[in-house]
Design a protein around this nucleic acid. Structure first.
Lengths: 198, 198
DNA sequence: ATTTTTTGTGAGCAGTCGTTCAACTACGGA
DNA sequence: TCCGTAGTTGAACGACTGCTCACAAAAAAT
């Protein structure tokens, strides 16, 4: 054996994730990373090989924890799937953080030409979200909350786009009132049954 | 007077715009800019003061030419506003360019924490698009193409988000078939009247 | 023709980038 | 106890960053 690792990998990835989410891949220098994680370059490079490697690991952690977690809580588990979709949207900008860091997937997708190694991870995360929407829509339809002839695949794709667009607007500093309006419109666009309808 | 400027400012801004659109602000170095525009740093700095200054000028040019132009052609002028909205969406990813550079507004919005000087320009551009949507929707409603009780402001905001989301997905390398599906959904979500309806 | 004014050129600046590595520290096994 | 091994440290590397400026070139003013 030998000396034991003094730091927790999950904690370091969480710090790196926060930093990348806020500043992007190019905008986060290794000095920034050093400060954020408390790790010196030697340790970082021993475990993650490169800045790229760290970024990919952080993106994977983001997918496995943040994205999967949010999809589960808002899209897979709620007994009211329509309300779940709504809260999935609003929780994207009501983070309590200022400034709102947006979504690492969105930010990385846009940066993808300068970080091509990350595109696979971005796709994986987007797929998770889209599948989550599809699941929630299917369940909502089965519960009679949505029109029976709603095309789940098409609606899920549109909700994904709308969600990514919302996160762009979050980054652009759009006021929350407008973000709520968009969320309301998103829900309305999947055509939930009103009271007394159908 | 003195010596005359040898280069066309509009051409230089167009080249810079292309470069920034593809690589982002941080991803485009001054050497890249030099190569793309054919200008040496001295000339660049005499006219634009800094990399920031050049970027802001390029973003303004993007707003004034690309954004305004596309809004006019697809949203303000067409006699069929619904078809115009559709072509506004599809023209965002059927650029004929490979790889598709996406939209400078979208990309800059996401990069905004590392280029805070550009947020005002981004907002201006987004407002132009949203107003364009609102104009097209109003005209469509007046023509009886849409339901009379459609809320134009809400729908315009949602179309803007959807459009920005589409551009994120473009950057993520989403296949065109899916982008078309999303476009179809966007049109369907504003509820255009079918034949025989109303 | 000479001076003045503006523009173009590109070598070079100080600082930062991602990355490496030799010295050092802590632990398990003999 | 001492050795082998794994982890930590931070100074330093070459490459690159945004940017400057002394000089050359060209056009207007004199």
């Amino acid at each position: 054996m030998g000396r034991r690792q003094l730091w927790d990998q999950a904690e370091v990835l969480a710090s790196a994730m926060r930093l990348f989410r806020h500043r992007g891949y190019l905008g986060a220098s290794l000095r920034d990373i050093e400060e954020a994680t408390g790790l010196h370059p030697g340790s970082l490079y021993r475990v993650f090989e490169s800045k790229d490697g760290l970024f990919r690991a952080a993106l994977d952690a983001y997918n496995d924890q943040v994205v999967q977690g949010r999809v589960r809580v808002h899209l897979l588990e709620p007994t009211d799937p329509v309300a779940g979709i709504r809260s999935f949207f609003t929780s994207a900008f009501e983070t309590g953080l200022d400034p709102d860091p947006g979504c690492l997937l969105t930010n990385t997708a846009v940066e993808s030409f300068t970080v091509p190694q990350a595109t696979a991870g971005v796709r994986r995360g987007l797929d998770v979200i889209e599948s989550g929407f599809a699941d929630a829509l299917t369940r909502a339809r089965a519960l009679g909350l949505l029109s029976a002839d709603l095309d789940v695949e098409v609606s899920a794709a549109r909700l994904l786009a709308l969600y990514q667009g919302l996160l762009v607007l979050v980054r652009a500093g759009t006021p929350h009132t407008k973000l709520h309006t968009i969320t309301d419109g998103a829900i309305a666009s999947i055509g939930p049954m009103k009271e007394g309808q159908r």
